[in-house]
Amino acid sequence: MCVVALAHRVHPDWPLILIGNRDEFHARPAAPLAIWDDGSGIVAGRDLQAGGTWLGVHAPSGRVVVVTNVRGALPDPTKDSRGALVVDMLRGAGGFADPAAGDLGRFNAFNLFAVGDSAARLLSNRPAPQIAALAPGVHALANEPIDQPCPRAERLRTALDAVVGAGADPEGMLDTLMATSDPALFLRGDVYGTRASTLVAVAADGGVRMIERRYEAGGRPAGTTALEFRIG
């Protein structure tokens, strides 16, 4: 996931909204959004190369986690999987279920939003490992270190902030912002580009609307999955 925005406890109908694009090589295999069949309670797409995920919801607990990589740092194949970090944090079990700042250097460069128990956190290991609580509001991440300005993230944050301010249905963002030819948000490359646009919207009563729109090379639509379920 390369650009993502989070609205945390500010929309009148949806206390949690998460929307973003996953940009990746088109040749990297991935499974569509689904309820995982391993009994974990995770609802997510799946990276079939490393086995983890970039964005997911843990239906029993309501935890939501999303990760982006950070450009400018060469990946080290000996590092632990960022997708596995997301899975452990979603399940609340495993070696990285509740990572400390000292654990974050074990992964290649990343930024991460984690929401659970009505609290939201930012985790990052660029420019240095840190874990910070997020106040209610609209926040955004992309592929830049968190101490650097990122016009792409700010564009999405501003758009989600407008949806929040209007009390509007967040699903419209998938049409008006995520599936456009604007390279600021949607990448139409033949080798590398936007693979999926995903919306997670959690209502005050615990109902969840989760939509994934998938794309192949050149930005051609490759299918949509829309799920509704409850947390807890």
Rank of each mutant, 00 (worst) to 15 (best):
C2E: 05
A5M: 08
H11C: 09
L16P: 01
I17Q: 09
D23M: 03
F25Q: 11
A27S: 14
G39D: 11
I42Q: 00
R46G: 09
R46I: 09
D47Y: 04
L48W: 04
G51K: 00
R63K: 08
V64M: 07
V65F: 08
T68A: 12
V70A: 13
A73D: 14
S81L: 10
S81V: 11
V86M: 01
V87T: 15
L90T: 08
L90D: 05
A93H: 06
A97W: 01
A97E: 00
N108R: 06
F113L: 13
G116E: 13
S118G: 15
L122M: 11
N125P: 08
Q130V: 12
P136K: 03
L141E: 06
A142C: 14
I146A: 08
D147L: 07
A162C: 05
A162P: 03
V163K: 06
V164N: 12
G172Y: 07
M173C: 08
M178I: 08
L185Q: 13
L187G: 02
D190R: 14
S197T: 11
S197P: 11
D205K: 03
D205P: 06
D205R: 02
G206C: 08
E212H: 00
E212L: 04
G218C: 02
G223M: 10
E228P: 01
F229N: 03
G232K: 04
